[in-house]
Every structure is written in structure tokens, then in C-alpha cells.
Design a binder for these strands. Structure first.
Lengths: 166, 166
DNA sequence: CGAGGCTGGTTCAATTTCGAACAATCCTAG
DNA sequence: CTAGGATTGTTCGAAATTGAACCAGCCTCG
């Protein structure tokens, strides 16, 4: 490693280790779930996520944009996936009453059924890999961490684009 | 929500909330970093990661497979990105002495320079968004969490593919 | 009103990722 | 020594994601 001042140019070694481990773990988690979901239930993790959010929404429906926000992905990706799910018959588009440009995406009975088939599989996976229901301490700690991360991101999104370097 | 037994079919509500928040936060984090890196330094987050791992490796070089493992991505994706980086002149392929099928990927001076340009930007981002150097409690807690997650994943990978449902 | 700006969704080309198939090399047991 | 199995890296086609461009409907302020 070139120059060795850890003050500002580099992360403190332990923090750096935590960061890279974080990246690895999150990727492995996603991978694992995605694979399981595709092999056992024929849907992607993102598709599964869409079904979940729809099931949570009132009327088992949701706007495209809200969906995109809650999945944290580009709007175009949502259109793509909703088209796919629609072709599979798991989801239906409806016109939105109060806003003529909006479209409601609604879970079909088949969609709900598919979700209920898949859910136990990945929920048990979440329990085994991520967070066992029983361990409340970790849950609380993690919740706090997620809170600060979320706040940090909100703040960054609120502020205009930084351009401090280069 | 359809049937209401939280015992085994569904996650406990708070755990569920933590899980979805975790997914959202990780995606937002990746997005944020990726965007910043592309706008300010013309490289993807994965490309940046590759440069980082190479810089860490001895001789500033690494095998393709190890690279794929440490980035947690498909081997083919690594070949693709290494080709890109090679075209950019940030990286070079060399034959591996001890293993004729292996290839070493080595950081070029230009690659190191590019990395050193980009690093401060995203490291400060990591500090601001993810983990400030100063907060040791959180760091320790997070480290513990990452450890258990990592172990869980190892165990799951070690065991043959489960097929508990359907 | 009604012109400008904002928001919701889709389309499109480009990029990236993935997994399966493959060839080449290594390694180990017999 | 060698045959069979594992590992390494690439290629290939298919799928997914992205951002920008775009249209349409909303909204507000003059």
C-alpha cells in the first residue's frame, strides 16, 4: 500500500475490514436467497419482493412509483418485472381512479397463492441466515444501525450533489 | 394479510420490518456509492472493488477466481470486468507461473493512480454513510453481526442443497 | 383560464450479470 | 504412469438493470 497515513486517506483497518465484510455478506445473502427462490419457486428475488409489497399494500395493490421506491430500483426495472409477472398471471394492471396517469398493480389470486407457496421457504431462510426471531438483543442493535444508516442516506439525498474531490 | 398465524408461516412483525429495511438500506448504499463513483471517477463500484482487492493483494495482483470469490460475483462477470479494466489500461493479465491455467491480474501504475484518486471520495462516503471511525460500540456490534451472518452462510454453503418445502 | 413545471410510466439502447457449457490444466488414486 | 475427477478461466446466449428521452396528465401561480 502506497503512502501510509491512515488519518484521512484510508479507513482505519478494522473499519475497512468491517466494510468489505459487509459488502461480501450482503452479496452472499442476496445470492443465496435469489438462487433458492429461482430453483424452488421459479421467481427472482426482486419478483418475490414485488409480490410481498403488493400483499402488504391495501387492496393488495400499489402504484408503480411506490413499488420502485420500496424495492429501491429504477422505475424502468419495475415496469419490466411487472410485465413479466403480468405474463405469468401473478399480477394485474388497473387504471388508477384519482390519477389518470397512474397505474395500480394488483395481486391476482394466483399471485397470492404463489407468494404463499414461496414465503415459508425464504422466511425460514431469513431466520436461519439473518435474524432468528428469538434473539432480541441483536434485533434491537441492528434496528438502531439501520436507523442511522437510513438517516445518513436521507441526509445525503436531501443535500445537493457533493463534489468534494477530484 | 391472509391467514394470521405468526408462529411459523410469517416472521414476527418487527423482524420482518428489520429485514425489509435491511434490504432497502443495502440497496440504497450500493446505489449511492455506485453513482458517485461513476460520476466523479468514471468507474463502476465493482470495478473499484476489483482495483481495491488487487491493491491489497501481494504484488498488487490476484487470480481470477480469488477475485470472483472476494467480490462475490460470477466468474464470467469478473472476466468481463477485467477485460474492461484492461482496455482502460488499469489492469494487466499475466500468466501464472505455478499453475498454467491460472491468470494473474495485476494493477498497472495507471490503475493504482486511478484508485488513489477515487479512494478518498468513496472512503469519506463510507465514513459518512456507513461507519464513522469514531464510534467503536457500533463497530463492535456490527462486527459481531457480520460474523454470525458469515458463519450462517458458510454453514448453509457447506451443507447439501436443502429442499424442505414443496 | 392556461403556460410552465412537476410527476407517473413506458420505451429504448447500452451495460452488466448470470449460469451453463467448454477446453485446458492440475491432482490423486490405483 | 495414467485415467477420472476437480479446478481455472473463457465464451456464449439469455435475462436484468440502468439512465435518458419521452409523453401524458396533474398542479399552481399569474
Amino acid at each position: 500500500m502506497g503512502a501510509g497515513d491512515f488519518e484521512s486517506r484510508w479507513l482505519r483497518p478494522d473499519v475497512n475490514a468491517v466494510w468489505t465484510r459487509f459488502l461480501q455478506v450482503t452479496h452472499r445473502l442476496e445470492h443465496h436467497i435469489d438462487r433458492r427462490l429461482q430453483v424452488n419457486h421459479g421467481i427472482t428475488h426482486t419478483q418475490y419482493e414485488i409480490l410481498v409489497r403488493l400483499a402488504d399494500g391495501e387492496e393488495q395493490a400499489m402504484r408503480m412509483s411506490d413499488l420502485a421506491d420500496s424495492i429501491v430500483t429504477a422505475k424502468s426495472a419495475v415496469t419490466y418485472q411487472v410485465n413479466k409477472l403480468s405474463e405469468m398471471g401473478l399480477v394485474e394492471r388497473h387504471k388508477c381512479d384519482r390519477d389518470n396517469r397512474g397505474t395500480w398493480v394488483k395481486l391476482t389470486p394466483a399471485g397470492l397463492e404463489r407468494l404463499e407457496q414461496a414465503a415459508p421457504c425464504i422466511l425460514s431462510l431469513v431466520r436461519e441466515l439473518f435474524l432468528d426471531d428469538l434473539n432480541c438483543d441483536q434485533s434491537a442493535e441492528l434496528d438502531k444501525l439501520l436507523g442511522t444508516w437510513s438517516d445518513n442516506l436521507d441526509e445525503h439525498d436531501r443535500n445537493p450533489v457533493h463534489r468534494p474531490d477530484h
